[in-house]
Write a protein that binds this DNA or RNA. Structure first.
Length: 282
DNA sequence: TTCCTGTTGC
DNA sequence: GCAACTGGAA
C-alpha cells in the first residue's frame, strides 16, 4: 500500500478516508484472524495476552498463552497461585517481572474490584506492569472502547504513511492521527487491522520505527546482568530453596556480582533471603 | 544482527 | 530522558 497519504503530516479528510480503506482492505485479506485472544471476550484472558505481548513476538505468545490460560483459567485461580507456579508456566517468555505483575493484578482485581477487570484506562494504568499502551489495548480489545494508544506496530504504520519525509517523529505527533483515523464504531476491529498492517510493514523496507524519537537498540545479552538474572531464577525454579554459596557456585560468577543481582531480585519481589538460604518469594 | 502488540525506576 | 529488563527466531 503505497498510499497517496504518504508523507502528509497534515492529511485532509480524503487522505484519512483512503488510509482507512487501505488498512481495512489489507486486514480483510491478510489479517491474523486466527489468533486465540481475538476469539474471546473474556477480559481476563485478554489481559493475560496483552501482558504477554509486551515486547514479545506474537508467534511465541501463541504457544504460551493457551498453556497459561489452561493452568490459570480465571482471575481467582491466578490470584490464589504461588509465584513459583506462575514463573514456572511463564518460563521461556522473558521479562519475568511481567509474571509478578500479572499475579499482583489478579490479586488486586479479586480484592478490590470484585473479580472484574476494570474497563477504565486510568484505573488500568494504576496496576503494576500496565502503562499507556497496555491500558489502551485492554480498553479496546476487552471492552471495545475507542481508546487512543500507540505501540510498535501502530507507530510503524503512521510513521510510514504520514511521516515518510520526516526524521525524527515523536509519539506526540502521531497520537492526534491515531485519534483522527480511529473507527469509533468498531475500535477493536480497527486496531486489529492497524496492528496487522504494521506487523508486515518493514519486511522489505528499513524499519520505519528507527525514525521514531522513542527508538533505541538493546544492548548485547551475552554476558549481561539480564543473562545472570535469568540463570539465577532458572536455578531457583529447579531447586526450590538453595544455600547462597551453592547458588554462587552454580552460577560460576564472582560472589560480589551474583550477590548484587540477588539483592536486586529481592527488591523486585522475586526472591527471599533467610540467613544463608535463598528461595522464590511467597 | 535485528526485532518483538512496553513498563519501570532513576 | 534514559538504561534495565528477557528470550527466541529470522
Amino acid at each position: 500500500m503505497q498510499g497517496t497519504e504518504k508523507g502528509k503530516n497534515q492529511p485532509d479528510e480524503l487522505d484519512i478516508r483512503r488510509f482507512q480503506e487501505n488498512v481495512l482492505d489489507f486486514y480483510r485479506r491478510n489479517g491474523r484472524h486466527d489468533l486465540l485472544w481475538r476469539k474471546t471476550n473474556d477480559p481476563y484472558h485478554i489481559l493475560v495476552s496483552e501482558i504477554m505481548l509486551q515486547q514479545t513476538q506474537v508467534q511465541r505468545v501463541t504457544v504460551k498463552y493457551p498453556q497459561f490460560i489452561s493452568v490459570f483459567p480465571d482471575v481467582s485461580s491466578l490470584a490464589g497461585s504461588t509465584l513459583a507456579e506462575v514463573l514456572w508456566v511463564w518460563k521461556g517468555m522473558g521479562y519475568n517481572r511481567r509474571a509478578i505483575a500479572l499475579r499482583t493484578i489478579a490479586g488486586l482485581v479479586v480484592s478490590r474490584f470484585s473479580g472484574l477487570i476494570p474497563d477504565d484506562e486510568a484505573v488500568l494504568s494504576g496496576f503494576p506492569g500496565i502503562g499507556k499502551a497496555t491500558a489502551g489495548s485492554i480498553a479496546v480489545f476487552a471492552f471495545n472502547r475507542p481508546a487512543v494508544f500507540i505501540e510498535t506496530n501502530i507507530r510503524r504504520v503512521f510513521i510510514h504513511c504520514f511521516f515518510s519525509d520526516r526524521v525524527p517523529v515523536s509519539d506526540r505527533e502521531i497520537l492526534p492521527l491515531v485519534a483522527r483515523t480511529l473507527d469509533r464504531e468498531h475500535p477493536r476491529e480497527w486496531y486489529y487491522a492497524l496492528m496487522d498492517y504494521g506487523s508486515v510493514l518493514g519486511r522489505r523496507i528499513p524499519n520505519p520505527n528507527r525514525r521514531s524519537t522513542h527508538y533505541h537498540r538493546q544492548p548485547a545479552f551475552e554476558g549481561s546482568d539480564r543473562q545472570l538474572r535469568g540463570l539465577i531464577l532458572e536455578l531457583l525454579l529447579q531447586e526450590g530453596t538453595m544455600i547462597i554459596n551453592d547458588l554462587v557456585t552454580r552460577t560460576g560468577e564472582q560472589p560480589g556480582r551474583t550477590g548484587e543481582i540477588l539483592l536486586a531480585l529481592v527488591r523486585e519481589g522475586f526472591v527471599t533471603l533467610e540467613n544463608d538460604t535463598v528461595r522464590l518469594h511467597n
